[in-house]
Amino acid sequence: MEALKRCKRYKWLKKQFQYCKSPLAYKDIDNSLERILFYVYSYTNINYIEFIDDKVLYNYIKTHRLNNFREINFVTAISDVKNYLLFIEANKELKEYKPEIDLSVKNFSLWMRL
């Protein structure tokens, strides 16, 4: 029963991460969304994309750092977060749920925590 719930949760999250795809232009965004979807599914109990906030996205980067960036490198992790923010901003229904994230060099406290 638990496996069935997990499968339904994954399908539900994946459905929320869908968007109108272009064959080549959005390949990077598609890959980024797929990685963030897997992170949200694996490391959180979130069922709705609206609940993905700045803490979840910062933890996404932190998780990859703790894994010594074995799966993806640092630049890709940052790009994934930026691509997710572009996806949210482009979606009219989700635009109001866009997390406020500062990935600039001036955000010294973020980089010290990582």
Rank of each mutant, 00 (worst) to 15 (best):
A90R: 09
V81A: 05
I88F: 01
N67C: 11
N73T: 03
R70H: 12
F108M: 10
V81P: 06
Y84V: 01
R113W: 12
N67R: 14
L85D: 02
L94F: 02
E89R: 00
E100T: 07
S79V: 00
V105L: 13
W111M: 04
L110H: 04
P99T: 01
M112C: 12
V81E: 03
E96T: 12
S79D: 08
E100L: 04
A77D: 09
N107P: 05
Y84W: 04
V81D: 02
K82N: 10
V105Q: 10
V81C: 05
L110V: 07
D80H: 11
E71Y: 14
N107W: 06
F69C: 07
R70I: 14
K82R: 13
I88V: 12
S104T: 15
R113N: 13
E93W: 05
N91A: 09
L86D: 12
K95A: 07
L66W: 07
K98N: 03
H64W: 13
T76Y: 10
N91F: 06
K106D: 11
I72M: 09
S79A: 10
E71V: 14
E89D: 15
F87T: 00
E89C: 01
R70K: 15
D102T: 01
R65P: 00
S104R: 11
A90G: 14
W111C: 03
P99L: 03
Y97N: 06
F69Y: 15
R65G: 01
F87P: 02
E100R: 04
K82F: 01
K98C: 07
L94N: 00
K92Y: 08
N67E: 14
K82C: 04
F74K: 15
L66A: 06
E100D: 07
R70M: 09
E100Y: 01
F74W: 12
E96V: 15
A90S: 14
L85N: 05
A90Q: 14
N67F: 14
R70N: 13
Y84S: 01
K106T: 06
L103E: 05
I78M: 13
L86V: 12
D102K: 01
P99Y: 00
V81W: 02
L94Q: 00
K98R: 10
T76S: 15
E71T: 15
K95S: 10
E71S: 14
F69E: 08
A90Y: 07
K98F: 01
N73L: 06
Y97C: 02
F108Y: 11
R65Y: 11
R65M: 09
P99R: 04
I88R: 00
M112D: 13
F87G: 00
S109M: 06
N68W: 09
W111S: 03
L86E: 11
N107L: 06
N91Q: 10
K92W: 06
M112N: 14
R65V: 04
N68P: 07
L85G: 04
E96C: 11
R113E: 14
E93L: 10
D80K: 04
N107C: 06
L85T: 02
V105R: 12
T76K: 09
I78F: 05
A77C: 13
S109P: 02
L86Q: 13
W111H: 04
E96F: 05
